[in-house]
Write a protein that binds this DNA or RNA. Structure first.
Lengths: 203, 203, 203, 203
DNA sequence: CATGAATGAGCATTCATTCAT
DNA sequence: AATGAATGAATGCTCATTCAT
């Protein structure tokens, strides 16, 4: 069995990565709800049961994809923000870091978003509701600091978070339309809009 | 047969409306991917085969839901915009009309969005790609006019459309979390952001 | 759907009976734990899904077999006992009624026993533990009355019930070996043993 | 290879005993039909393939459990009977020896019975049919001798054997309900019944 | 001696669809 | 106009077994 607490073997790590990659490809090619175990297995060149061997269920695999993708995205963004102290600069860094990562890792992010949007846990709640609660901590910190400092227009925190996330998702939506799209113009205007929406004009 | 080219009978129209309503309820209650024909039929109080009788397939029913919902939403928005001639006023009316309709028809819109986001056509393309191409004509007109008149910040039209739609979707996303949510604060800030993003300061 | 509260249609009743019969045949031929839905369906000449259509799961079908078999067996025994008032006569009638029914309905009873012995509910408890609690009421009544009247040797009720059931199962075990066995000698000695075990010599 | 004809090594003997013990524990904890190789291996603290290495198949392991358990039970009974020459005394010793061993080795016997009752060989025949044919030799000898000597009530030998085994199984059935049950009352009445069933009153 | 890796056959179940009535 | 009956393809998953190391 592969999902125990014991440290991962070399083969296990490699196989898991391979299967996660196959899952990403599959989701991008045929969409979340047609991405069956056999479709994923076919693309990975392994038997269906190999997936269950390494992840213990289809859901676990998909959740691993999500975790993998958004952990990396979160790390990239955190690192981008790290250099700045000023909320406005941080927000800008956040957006640039986010969009830069998305641009550089189109397939992963696109699949991750698709899964997060489409997947339902056993009780029927969508995944994006479960996931994002803790993941938006950095963003919430920046927004709170900015509003407290008077640098950002004041609004309820949840509203602010939703606005930022909605704007940043413009690019990923575009990528979902076409993985090879030129998102540069979208990214540019997104950033501009973001700043115009939050940063109050200083004299 | 019910799906012929002949004009709809009274019964047929009523039944279709009833089934569309049942589909909306079902999608809201258990989500798109659990909304099977039998679940919908159970809620409508008819046999599964009745759905196929009136809509020829499950997909056709869901597509009808989408068409119904977004046609009405489009009409409401068109009517709201109609009174104004000035692009800035039109954009404001567009947003207010859109958000007002969403607020007043939460269940329909939420279900429509859920379907549009989750459903894939046979070749795997998501529905929201197929649908929105022609439906954004009004918005594109307003934005083009505004940019041509120098009232709006200039940017590529597709980008502008995506930005507006992303911002307007903040409220529907919130409703997907909780159908009874108070979206007033979201709506307010969405409109403010929208205007700040597009309308250039005069003089 | 077929498992609702509504009264059974003619077809439904017939199909259910047919499927129960097929389940009995299958269990007798290849044993409980090889009696898969497809084996049962093959013997019934229907698709696997037809079983799920009429019973909502494999377990429900098997439980229906058990219920059917033991309800009828119980009725037959109750009717046999009904004529007598004296505990000793009742015990004799009980045994004769039981063994007579078993002899006349070999396949049903054999399959019922096999299922009851082998099946486990979701939490792992065997079925014969769940089932027999209430079903032994008649027997318990007879034994209690007999012991209270001094006609039967006195012993704990649960022990008495177990002894009687163990003895009566000698014949069904023999039938499990060979459905066409001559169980007459077994039945005869079972009854003799039963009486010698319980009925105290009068005078 | 481990299953060859060559004499068992020390390690091999120990491993086999360990795996048999794990199989017994597993069957008692989760029942025969959930006792998969991986469950057994987990409880034994070894890999699944280790079981196959020592027993060549799952079935072989289970058969070994049965053989082990019933050989020991048989030996214990044989030893108990050995002291007596008189059929009545021998039957009593047989029963007492049997029930004493069962009481003292609850887990083993319970698991053995569970396997014997539930398992089917490839052609579908239950195991208890295959097993008991030769194992009842001692009992058959006692019963034959007793009947020939006029000490026992005369009846067909197979019937007599079935009756004795059914009565002795009352206690194991009780243990299957609850491994910690107090079977003393059951044992007592079983013996009484056994004697009353077979031993003819001598004047 | 023992394992981790990988498989393939089989499982119960779901579900959109077809069709006779 | 509407249904109940029945299906077959597909799904996620279990598990004994094989095998290279």
């Amino acid at each position: 069995m592969a999902s125990s607490e014991s440290p991962r073997t070399f083969t296990e790590t490699a196989r898991r990565a391979q299967l996660i990659a196959a899952a990403i490809t599959t989701v991008n090619e045929i969409g979340y709800h047609r991405a069956s175990l056999s479709e994923i297995a076919r693309r990975a060149g392994v038997a269906k049961s190999a997936i269950v061997y390494y992840f213990s269920s289809k859901e676990a695999l998909l959740l691993s994809v999500v975790e993998e993708v958004f952990t990396r995205l979160g790390d990239a963004v955190a690192q981008a923000v790290d250099a700045d102290a000023d909320p406005s600069a941080q927000l800008l860094a956040y957006a640039r870091g986010y969009l830069g990562y998305v641009d550089a890792h189109r397939a992963e992010v696109t699949a991750g978003i698709e899964i997060v949007v489409s997947h339902r846990t056993e009780d029927g709640t969508p995944l994006y509701l479960t996931v994002s609660e803790e993941d938006s901590q950095l963003l919430r910190g920046i927004l709170t600091a900015g509003m407290d400092a008077g640098a950002f227009r004041r609004m309820p925190l949840t509203v602010a978070v939703s606005l930022v996330e909605a704007l940043l998702d413009v690019c990923t939506t575009e990528l979902q339309r076409d993985l090879d799209a030129d998102i540069e113009p979208f990214a540019e205007e997104t950033v501009t809009t973001l700043l115009s929406a939050f940063v109050v004009a200083t004299r």
